[in-house]
Design a protein around this nucleic acid. Structure first.
Lengths: 337, 337
DNA sequence: CTGTTAGCGCTTTCAG
DNA sequence: CTGAAAGCGCTAACAG
């Protein structure tokens, strides 16, 4: 770019310069076999001088490994997946792996094909896969999963039970919410749920029903707007309720906005609980009662599990389920008639 | 992983199976030279059957290109850098490039070394570099920048004027803020600025001074907490002001929180303006008056510029400066005595 | 239309 | 302690 043609030095050139063979340079740098200290010193000097670093394509072809893992997320700009990415990146970096991010744009098939191919072409050694909705091309994933290193983060895929996953106790989270609202004296609840196709949605709906068996359940898309609109529908239809369980904080925030516009106070008239514990939950006023999921930890754990798959004893990679925690803040209050 | 040893097929094996040479397989797949249609068909079939895809390490070693670009960001989980990443990813994907994300953890030297090395080892073809503070190891960057493809996103580096950058008209943004507050009748302002070492900070401070020449300026770190604390200092010292210009929305939000705790109303008693226009700015109430920067577009433009550097005519890559826009919402109001 | 050869840059036998 | 040679998987020149 700046200098027109700065072809980097090759090991052979360094070797020539040092008056030794490439083999010796290789070993001097890796320490994988004894080399005369003087020779090492000389090589080091020349390496320093030219800023030589072994070309990674050569190393990769030779070793059959890339030193890179992939992370597939629907949208990297999303708070939720950003946190996961942070955790994955942290561990990858620790292990001296690179991380390539594949945005799936909410399951755009062309995009998905692309990172499946990265696995197939051995451009990456493994993949952490996340999704916020049901897969567009599950069949292809099933094929690719054979003989590849994959870990599902946050959401497992039912059809692939053998693939390790890192999930959370969402069922327990929903129970905590139900219990909390019951203790506050509420008896009529509505649920603004996540995607209908996700296991985590089904589980939460079922668990919440243990406390509110007849709770009306509407399915949204995890975006604020959908919480807003679904709440609008509820109000337009005169549904009677004194509390809302939203399957994530963004939808909860949207629902609260809609309630306020209708002159309904939160938490005085209606209690609202979210899920995930986004940053905003503490900023808003009143602060949002929610269920905390440690997204960064999900990322970390997923990456570690992936490395178990890649480097560990066969079968050493185990699925794990991380705990969640109810955080009671200001959007829930005792029922008032 | 699942199947114990599924070594992928090599081109040579496919060739043997098809009764042709590897060369022919290569050309049949790439179309770079005519191949007998029947032969092509046969090869296609075998390729399909075994799910063959050319090993990328081989291709890379041969071609000298990796088909991957890097993105260095302080923290991928941060709203700001997530947006940039989204834009970069979008364009990379469009060009069939992979994107590796390098978290610099706010300029951790070990981390920075790591992705500089990726450039050096030719593990990536180019790098989009962002920073939120002054560089930890500018000298190393200067060295690496020689003969490598780099683009600075969002913040240019003064010592490297030849490196293309994509920035915004922050100066103009600060002027708009000054003008707006003047028009509302304010005469005493304080500034909660960004890192002192950044050009964008200096520029904004200077531009705002055109309207409020004596505005007290405190430097923060772009985090909410710092806006909160700096506002605390201002209050503790009885500084007289009726409006605040914060260099980003998070600090603005922190400052507002602190003002409220002190019983000072926004915007009735004090007007507050942020910068960037984060999602939360619209959610909070009153909604935040701020200056909108299109972060995703910065990402896109940076990636395009990087591809100009990598693939374009030498010298075809140009720095660009994107516009910003004042968004007047609810946290600013006419001065009241 | 097709094959042979060579070589990208590296590491690892095997042989001194 | 060191080197020569082979080969990872692919493709471009050079022959047919």
């Amino acid at each position: 770019m700046l200098s027109p043609e700065t072809r980097p030095w090759t090991m052979a050139q360094i070797a020539a310069e040092a008056g030794v063979s490439a083999t010796t340079v290789s070993h001097a740098l890796s320490g994988k076999r004894p080399v005369n200290p003087e020779t090492v010193a000389r090589i080091q000097r020349i390496v320093q001088e030219h800023g030589f670093v072994p070309n990674s394509s050569g190393v990769r072809l030779r070793s059959g490994r890339t030193g890179v893992i992939g992370l597939a997320v629907p949208d990297i700009a999303h708070w939720y997946f950003g946190r996961i990415a942070k955790g994955v990146e942290e561990i990858a970096n620790e292990r001296d792996y690179g991380l390539v991010i594949c945005g799936t744009m909410n399951a755009d098939p062309r995009r998905e094909k692309r990172y499946f191919n990265m696995l197939r072409t051995r451009a990456i050694d493994g993949l952490v896969y996340t999704t916020s909705r049901s897969m567009s091309d599950l069949d292809e994933l099933v094929t690719v999963a054979q003989g590849s290193s994959i870990v599902f983060a946050d959401e497992a895929v039912d059809r692939l039970p053998e693939v390790p996953s890192v999930t959370t106790t969402v069922r327990e989270g929903a129970r905590l919410v139900g219990e909390h609202l019951r203790e506050l004296g509420h008896s009529r609840a509505v649920v603004i749920a996540g995607y209908a196709g996700l296991r985590s949605t089904t589980e939460r709906v079922a668990a919440f029903r243990e406390y509110f068996p007849t709770a009306l359940t509407l399915f949204g898309d995890f975006e604020q707007q959908s919480g807003y609109e679904l709440m609008g529908d509820l109000l337009a239809n005169d549904v009677a309720f004194s509390c809302v369980f939203a399957h994530n904080d963004f939808m909860a925030i949207g629902a609260i906005r809609r309630l306020r516009e209708a002159g309904i106070r939160v938490p005085e008239d209606v209690s609202v609980v979210g899920f995930d514990d986004v940053d905003v939950a503490t900023i808003m006023s009143p602060a949002l009662t929610t269920v905390r999921k440690d997204m960064v930890e999900i990322g970390r754990r997923s990456a570690r599990t992936l490395f178990d798959v890649i480097e560990g004893e066969p079968g050493s990679a185990r699925s794990s389920v991380l705990p969640v925690e109810l955080v009671v803040r200001g959007t829930t209050a005792p029922r008032r008639d």
